[in-house]
Protein backbone atom coordinates (compact mmCIF):
# COMPACT_ATOMS: atom_id res chain seq x y z
CA UNK A 1 0.00 0.00 0.00
CA UNK A 2 1.23 3.51 -0.76
CA UNK A 3 2.05 5.97 2.02
CA UNK A 4 0.56 9.45 1.81
CA UNK A 5 0.42 12.40 4.17
CA UNK A 6 -2.63 13.28 6.22
CA UNK A 7 -2.87 16.44 4.18
CA UNK A 8 -3.00 14.48 0.91
CA UNK A 9 -5.52 12.09 2.41
CA UNK A 10 -7.91 14.91 3.24
CA UNK A 11 -7.38 16.43 -0.18
CA UNK A 12 -8.20 13.11 -1.87
CA UNK A 13 -11.31 12.61 0.23
CA UNK A 14 -12.63 16.03 -0.72
CA UNK A 15 -11.79 15.63 -4.40
CA UNK A 16 -13.42 12.21 -4.60
CA UNK A 17 -16.58 13.38 -2.88
CA UNK A 18 -16.78 16.54 -4.99
CA UNK A 19 -16.50 14.43 -8.14
CA UNK A 20 -19.14 12.08 -6.86
CA UNK A 21 -21.64 14.72 -5.73
CA UNK A 22 -22.01 18.09 -7.40
CA UNK A 23 -23.75 19.60 -4.40
CA UNK A 24 -20.56 19.40 -2.30
CA UNK A 25 -18.64 22.65 -2.04
CA UNK A 26 -15.84 24.04 0.12
CA UNK A 27 -16.06 27.45 1.74
CA UNK A 28 -13.62 29.35 3.94
CA UNK A 29 -10.71 31.76 4.05
CA UNK A 30 -7.93 31.27 1.49
CA UNK A 31 -9.19 27.86 0.46
CA UNK A 32 -8.98 28.40 -3.30
CA UNK A 33 -5.70 29.39 -4.97
CA UNK A 34 -3.86 29.43 -1.64
CA UNK A 35 -5.21 25.99 -0.71
CA UNK A 36 -5.26 27.08 2.98
CA UNK A 37 -2.22 28.08 5.06
CA UNK A 38 -1.53 24.37 5.58
CA UNK A 39 -1.80 23.71 1.81
CA UNK A 40 -4.27 20.91 2.45
CA UNK A 41 -6.58 21.97 -0.37
CA UNK A 42 -3.98 22.64 -3.07
CA UNK A 43 -5.21 21.81 -6.54
CA UNK A 44 -8.91 21.61 -5.72
CA UNK A 45 -9.85 25.00 -7.13
CA UNK A 46 -8.12 24.08 -10.38
CA UNK A 47 -10.36 21.06 -10.75
CA UNK A 48 -13.63 22.35 -9.31
CA UNK A 49 -13.51 26.09 -9.94
CA UNK A 50 -14.22 29.03 -7.71
CA UNK A 51 -17.97 28.32 -7.62
CA UNK A 52 -17.28 25.21 -5.53
CA UNK A 53 -14.07 26.19 -3.77
CA UNK A 54 -15.15 29.49 -2.36
CA UNK A 55 -12.80 32.05 -0.82
CA UNK A 56 -14.57 34.20 1.74
CA UNK A 57 -13.91 37.42 3.57
CA UNK A 58 -12.57 36.97 7.11
CA UNK A 59 -16.02 36.49 8.56
CA UNK A 60 -16.30 33.16 10.35
CA UNK A 61 -19.84 33.57 11.71
CA UNK A 62 -20.92 34.83 8.30
CA UNK A 63 -19.67 31.94 6.21
CA UNK A 64 -20.62 29.41 8.85
CA UNK A 65 -24.17 30.79 8.88
CA UNK A 66 -24.24 30.83 5.11
CA UNK A 67 -23.20 27.19 5.06
CA UNK A 68 -26.04 26.27 7.43
CA UNK A 69 -28.57 27.84 5.07
CA UNK A 70 -26.96 26.21 2.05
CA UNK A 71 -27.08 22.83 3.78
CA UNK A 72 -30.77 23.29 4.59
CA UNK A 73 -31.54 23.88 0.91
CA UNK A 74 -29.89 21.06 -0.98
CA UNK A 75 -26.15 21.73 -0.88
CA UNK A 76 -23.47 19.92 1.13
CA UNK A 77 -20.98 22.49 2.36
CA UNK A 78 -17.58 21.66 3.78
CA UNK A 79 -16.67 24.66 5.91
CA UNK A 80 -12.98 25.30 6.38
CA UNK A 81 -12.22 26.93 9.70
CA UNK A 82 -8.54 27.86 9.57
CA UNK A 83 -7.87 27.24 13.26
CA UNK A 84 -9.91 25.29 15.76
CA UNK A 85 -9.49 28.21 18.13
CA UNK A 86 -11.83 30.27 15.96
CA UNK A 87 -14.70 27.98 16.83
CA UNK A 88 -15.68 30.43 19.56
CA UNK A 89 -16.59 32.92 16.84
CA UNK A 90 -19.06 30.58 15.16
CA UNK A 91 -20.66 29.06 18.22
CA UNK A 92 -24.13 30.50 17.59
CA UNK A 93 -24.28 29.32 14.02
CA UNK A 94 -22.87 25.90 14.87
CA UNK A 95 -24.57 25.16 18.17
CA UNK A 96 -27.80 27.17 18.10
CA UNK A 97 -28.53 26.87 14.40
CA UNK A 98 -26.85 23.86 12.73
CA UNK A 99 -27.06 21.49 15.69
CA UNK A 100 -30.70 22.14 16.54
CA UNK A 101 -32.44 22.67 13.23
CA UNK A 102 -33.31 19.02 12.62
CA UNK A 103 -34.70 18.63 16.13
CA UNK A 104 -36.53 21.94 16.32
CA UNK A 105 -38.25 21.24 13.03
CA UNK A 106 -39.44 17.86 14.22
CA UNK A 107 -37.21 16.14 11.68
CA UNK A 108 -38.33 18.13 8.64
CA UNK A 109 -35.22 20.17 7.98
CA UNK A 110 -31.68 18.82 8.03
CA UNK A 111 -28.20 20.31 7.90
CA UNK A 112 -25.76 18.05 6.02
CA UNK A 113 -22.67 20.08 6.72
CA UNK A 114 -19.03 19.33 7.53
CA UNK A 115 -16.94 21.70 9.58
CA UNK A 116 -13.31 20.80 9.11
CA UNK A 117 -10.90 22.40 11.49
CA UNK A 118 -7.93 21.45 13.63
CA UNK A 119 -6.52 21.00 17.10
CA UNK A 120 -3.16 20.42 18.72
CA UNK A 121 -0.48 22.26 20.66
CA UNK A 122 3.34 22.28 20.52
CA UNK A 123 3.58 24.31 17.32
CA UNK A 124 4.83 27.30 19.33
CA UNK A 125 1.74 29.21 18.31
CA UNK A 126 0.64 30.28 21.80
CA UNK A 127 -2.77 30.38 23.41
CA UNK A 128 -5.04 31.42 20.53
CA UNK A 129 -3.74 29.03 17.85
CA UNK A 130 -3.12 25.85 19.81
CA UNK A 131 -6.29 24.76 21.50
CA UNK A 132 -8.04 21.40 21.23
CA UNK A 133 -11.68 22.36 21.60
CA UNK A 134 -13.52 19.23 20.50
CA UNK A 135 -15.12 18.75 23.93
CA UNK A 136 -16.97 22.04 23.49
CA UNK A 137 -18.85 20.79 20.48
CA UNK A 138 -19.14 17.17 21.61
CA UNK A 139 -21.24 18.61 24.45
CA UNK A 140 -23.91 19.78 22.02
CA UNK A 141 -26.58 17.25 20.99
CA UNK A 142 -27.09 17.26 17.23
CA UNK A 143 -23.41 17.50 16.26
CA UNK A 144 -21.19 14.54 15.39
CA UNK A 145 -17.50 14.82 16.16
CA UNK A 146 -14.67 12.94 14.42
CA UNK A 147 -11.00 12.90 15.46
CA UNK A 148 -8.78 11.25 12.82
CA UNK A 149 -5.55 9.79 14.20
CA UNK A 150 -3.71 9.23 10.91
CA UNK A 151 -3.96 9.80 7.17
CA UNK A 152 -5.99 6.61 6.86
CA UNK A 153 -8.63 7.80 9.30
CA UNK A 154 -8.54 11.33 7.94
CA UNK A 155 -9.62 10.15 4.52
CA UNK A 156 -12.17 7.56 5.53
CA UNK A 157 -13.80 9.71 8.17
CA UNK A 158 -13.95 12.76 5.89
CA UNK A 159 -15.76 10.81 3.18
CA UNK A 160 -18.25 9.48 5.71
CA UNK A 161 -18.73 12.97 7.14
CA UNK A 162 -19.54 14.45 3.73
CA UNK A 163 -22.18 11.79 3.10
CA UNK A 164 -23.70 12.16 6.57
CA UNK A 165 -26.93 14.16 6.71
CA UNK A 166 -26.04 15.78 10.04
CA UNK A 167 -23.60 18.53 10.94
CA UNK A 168 -20.23 16.86 11.53
CA UNK A 169 -17.17 18.55 13.01
CA UNK A 170 -13.81 17.03 12.09
CA UNK A 171 -10.71 18.10 14.00
CA UNK A 172 -7.42 17.31 12.29
CA UNK A 173 -4.25 17.53 14.33
CA UNK A 174 -2.26 20.26 12.63
CA UNK A 175 1.02 18.63 13.65
CA UNK A 176 0.11 15.55 11.67
CA UNK A 177 -0.50 17.16 8.25
CA UNK A 178 2.85 15.89 6.97
CA UNK A 179 2.77 12.51 8.68
CA UNK A 180 2.50 9.62 6.25
CA UNK A 181 0.48 6.47 6.71
CA UNK A 182 -0.57 3.60 4.45
CA UNK A 183 -3.75 4.56 2.59
CA UNK A 184 -5.36 2.23 0.05
CA UNK A 185 -5.74 3.35 -3.55
CA UNK A 186 -9.24 1.98 -3.69
CA UNK A 187 -12.18 3.76 -2.16
CA UNK A 188 -13.09 3.13 1.48
CA UNK A 189 -15.18 4.79 4.15
CA UNK A 190 -14.85 4.54 7.92
CA UNK A 191 -18.20 4.28 9.67
CA UNK A 192 -18.87 6.59 12.59
CA UNK A 193 -19.17 5.08 16.04
CA UNK A 194 -16.71 2.23 15.44
CA UNK A 195 -13.61 2.31 17.57
CA UNK A 196 -10.38 0.83 16.26
CA UNK A 197 -8.35 -1.48 18.45
CA UNK A 198 -4.89 -0.39 17.39
CA UNK A 199 -3.06 -2.86 19.56
CA UNK A 200 -4.37 -5.73 21.61
CA UNK A 201 -3.32 -6.21 25.19
CA UNK A 202 -4.41 -7.81 28.44
CA UNK A 203 -3.12 -5.75 31.39
CA UNK A 204 -4.26 -2.20 30.80
CA UNK A 205 -6.32 -0.24 28.26
CA UNK A 206 -5.03 3.01 26.84
CA UNK A 207 -7.78 5.00 25.10
CA UNK A 208 -6.37 7.80 22.97
CA UNK A 209 -7.88 10.31 20.56
CA UNK A 210 -6.33 12.08 17.56
CA UNK A 211 -2.54 12.40 17.98
CA UNK A 212 -2.81 10.88 21.46
CA UNK A 213 -3.28 7.53 19.74
CA UNK A 214 0.38 7.69 18.72
CA UNK A 215 1.30 8.74 22.23
CA UNK A 216 -0.53 5.70 23.60
CA UNK A 217 1.09 3.39 21.05
CA UNK A 218 4.54 4.60 22.03
CA UNK A 219 3.70 4.17 25.69
CA UNK A 220 2.45 0.65 24.94
CA UNK A 221 5.77 -0.21 23.33
CA UNK A 222 7.72 1.04 26.32
CA UNK A 223 5.45 -0.97 28.61
CA UNK A 224 5.78 -4.09 26.48
CA UNK A 225 9.52 -4.01 27.01
CA UNK A 226 8.78 -4.18 30.74
CA UNK A 227 6.35 -7.04 30.38
CA UNK A 228 3.15 -4.99 30.63
CA UNK A 229 0.64 -5.74 27.90
CA UNK A 230 -1.30 -2.60 26.96
CA UNK A 231 -4.32 -2.46 24.68
CA UNK A 232 -4.61 0.74 22.64
CA UNK A 233 -8.00 1.93 21.39
CA UNK A 234 -8.83 4.82 19.10
CA UNK A 235 -12.54 5.75 19.31
CA UNK A 236 -12.21 7.66 15.98
CA UNK A 237 -15.48 9.48 16.61
CA UNK A 238 -16.40 10.76 20.05
CA UNK A 239 -19.98 11.46 18.92
CA UNK A 240 -21.22 8.85 18.32
CA UNK A 241 -18.99 6.99 20.75
CA UNK A 242 -18.38 3.26 20.47
CA UNK A 243 -18.95 2.64 24.15
CA UNK A 244 -19.25 -1.08 23.64
CA UNK A 245 -15.67 -1.58 22.49
CA UNK A 246 -14.32 0.65 25.26
CA UNK A 247 -16.32 -1.07 28.01
CA UNK A 248 -15.42 -4.55 26.77
CA UNK A 249 -11.76 -3.67 26.83
CA UNK A 250 -12.06 -2.16 30.32
CA UNK A 251 -13.74 -5.33 31.54
CA UNK A 252 -10.99 -7.41 29.99
CA UNK A 253 -7.96 -5.49 31.28
CA UNK A 254 -9.48 -3.97 34.45
CA UNK A 255 -7.36 -0.84 34.20
CA UNK A 256 -7.88 2.17 31.94
CA UNK A 257 -6.14 5.43 31.12
CA UNK A 258 -7.94 7.91 28.83
CA UNK A 259 -5.65 10.28 26.96
CA UNK A 260 -6.86 13.34 25.03
CA UNK A 261 -5.38 16.70 24.10
CA UNK A 262 -8.32 18.80 25.26
CA UNK A 263 -8.11 20.40 28.70
CA UNK A 264 -8.50 17.72 31.32
CA UNK A 265 -11.28 19.35 33.33
CA UNK A 266 -14.84 18.84 32.10
CA UNK A 267 -13.51 17.20 28.97
CA UNK A 268 -13.45 14.03 26.87
CA UNK A 269 -11.28 12.12 29.33
CA UNK A 270 -13.74 12.70 32.15
CA UNK A 271 -16.68 11.73 29.98
CA UNK A 272 -15.16 8.45 28.87
CA UNK A 273 -13.90 7.67 32.38
CA UNK A 274 -17.39 8.33 33.71
CA UNK A 275 -19.01 5.94 31.30
CA UNK A 276 -16.50 3.22 32.10
CA UNK A 277 -17.11 3.70 35.82
CA UNK A 278 -20.84 3.40 35.28
CA UNK A 279 -20.71 0.32 33.12
CA UNK A 280 -17.59 -1.61 34.12
CA UNK A 281 -17.16 -0.67 37.80
CA UNK A 282 -17.09 -4.16 39.23
CA UNK A 283 -14.50 -5.25 36.69
CA UNK A 284 -12.02 -2.51 37.55
CA UNK A 285 -8.91 -3.01 39.67
CA UNK A 286 -7.99 0.67 39.74
CA UNK A 287 -9.64 4.06 39.23
CA UNK A 288 -9.96 5.09 35.60
CA UNK A 289 -7.28 7.70 35.03
CA UNK A 290 -7.74 10.87 32.99
CA UNK A 291 -4.84 12.45 31.14
CA UNK A 292 -5.79 15.61 29.28
CA UNK A 293 -3.94 18.81 28.48
CA UNK A 294 -3.04 20.89 31.51
CA UNK A 295 -5.77 23.29 32.60
CA UNK A 296 -3.86 26.40 31.58
CA UNK A 297 -3.98 28.50 28.41
CA UNK A 298 -1.36 27.09 26.03
CA UNK A 299 1.91 28.94 26.77
CA UNK A 300 4.30 30.10 24.06
CA UNK A 301 7.68 29.16 25.52
CA UNK A 302 8.75 25.67 24.43
CA UNK A 303 9.96 25.06 27.96
CA UNK A 304 6.41 25.54 29.18
CA UNK A 305 4.32 24.37 26.24
CA UNK A 306 5.81 20.89 26.08
CA UNK A 307 4.81 20.05 29.63
CA UNK A 308 1.13 20.89 29.03
CA UNK A 309 0.31 17.88 26.83
CA UNK A 310 0.46 14.15 27.68
CA UNK A 311 3.65 12.40 26.52
CA UNK A 312 4.38 8.69 26.01
CA UNK A 313 6.66 8.77 29.06
CA UNK A 314 3.94 10.23 31.26
CA UNK A 315 1.36 7.73 30.03
CA UNK A 316 3.76 4.83 30.63
CA UNK A 317 4.61 6.14 34.08
CA UNK A 318 0.95 6.34 35.06
CA UNK A 319 0.35 2.87 33.63
CA UNK A 320 3.11 1.47 35.83
CA UNK A 321 1.55 3.10 38.87
CA UNK A 322 -1.87 1.66 38.06
CA UNK A 323 -0.30 -1.76 37.56
CA UNK A 324 1.49 -1.62 40.90
CA UNK A 325 -1.68 -0.61 42.69
CA UNK A 326 -0.26 2.71 43.77
CA UNK A 327 -2.86 5.28 44.74
CA UNK A 328 -1.96 7.97 42.32
CA UNK A 329 -4.76 10.35 43.10
CA UNK A 330 -4.74 10.26 46.88
CA UNK A 331 -5.51 13.88 47.46
Amino acid sequence: MRNITLSQAVNEALAEEMRRDETVFIIGEDVAEAGTPFKVLSGLVEEFGTARVVDTPIAEPGFMGLAVGAAMTGSRPVVDLMFGDFIYLIMDQLCNQAAKTHYMSGGKLSVPLVLRTNLGATRRSAAQHSQSLHALVAHIPGLKVALPSSAYEAKGLMKTAIRDNNPVVIFEDKLMYNDKAPVPEEEYLIPFGEANIKREGTDITLIGTSSMVQVCEKAAEMLAAEGISAEVIDPRTIVPLDEKTLIESAKKTSRVIVVDEGHQSFGITGEIAGRINEKAFYHLDAPVLRMGAMDVPVPFSPALEDITVPTPEAVAENARKLMSGEMIHAA
Binding site: P61, G62, F63, M64, G65, L66, A67, V68, G69, A70, A71, M72, T73, G74, S75, P77, Q93, Q97
Partner: peptide
Amino acid sequence: MGIATGAAFS
Protein backbone atom coordinates in the same frame (compact mmCIF):
# COMPACT_ATOMS: atom_id res chain seq x y z
CA MET B 1 -29.28 36.08 8.34
CA GLY B 2 -26.59 33.54 7.52
CA ILE B 3 -29.20 30.90 6.76
CA ALA B 4 -31.07 33.16 4.32
CA THR B 5 -27.88 34.14 2.58
CA GLY B 6 -26.86 30.50 2.41
CA ALA B 7 -30.20 29.50 0.89
CA ALA B 8 -29.56 32.09 -1.81
CA PHE B 9 -26.02 30.77 -2.26
CA SER B 10 -27.41 27.26 -2.62
